[in-house]
Amino acid sequence: MIKVNGRDREWEKNLTVDLLLKKCKYSFPLIMVKVNGKYIPKEKYQNTLIMDGDDVQVIHSIAGG
């Protein structure tokens, strides 16, 4: 199990940041990802593996109405 924005989510093997964003349908272009509090730059999404128990934050910078 991992946490994504404070909510539980099943963990799976070989789960990268990139894959997680796709699975969560987080398509918004302006997001900031932190894994266990550590900022992950966009260019590292494909290579950064998420481990079981990790705490992932995906913050959307959307202004809205």
Binding site: N5, G6, V58, I59, G64, G65
Partner: peptide, 18 residues
Amino acid sequence: QHDENWLIFMDQVNNQIP
């Protein structure tokens, strides 16, 4: 009208105000 508040993403997606 949303001009007083627009908190959807902060709440629903980012879960920053649980």
